[in-house]
Amino acid sequence: MSIDSQFTHKMWNDHELSKMVEGGIPYPMLSDAGGKIGSVYGIYDENAGVETRGRFIIDPDGIVQGFEVLTPPVGRNINESFRQIQAFQLVREKNGSEATPSGWRPGKATLKPGVDLVGNVWKEWQTKQAFD
């Protein structure tokens, strides 16, 4: 979503993005002229008149589970967004009985919060797991 019109979206998709992504952009490109939606989400820069690089993960109940906001010159890491969604999906699936520690990816160990884990995370999880 950006402040551009749907006409500009069409031109950008048809003339540039479709040359980078086969078949063009596979999701809706939304228009927020005037930044009204961006203002509600808190990411509209009223001085520049554009939206900053805000990214929101919204779960199936419509609840915001996470967000990230960057200034324009730095691009996002889409794999990190996917990783976070996978983590939120696991937590939802397990009804909160499992939590995903730092650096978790699908297949890696989770933690089971509870009385017995208090003070014992060091036995279950090593710092290097955040980086591997």
């Binding site: 979503m1 551009d4 990214r55 993960i57």
Partner: peptide, 12 residues
């Protein structure tokens, strides 16, 4: 469904 909502500064 899970939704990833992305804002960005502008086309092009």
């Amino acid at each position: 469904k899970w939704v990833l909502l992305c804002f960005y500064p502008g086309d092009f």
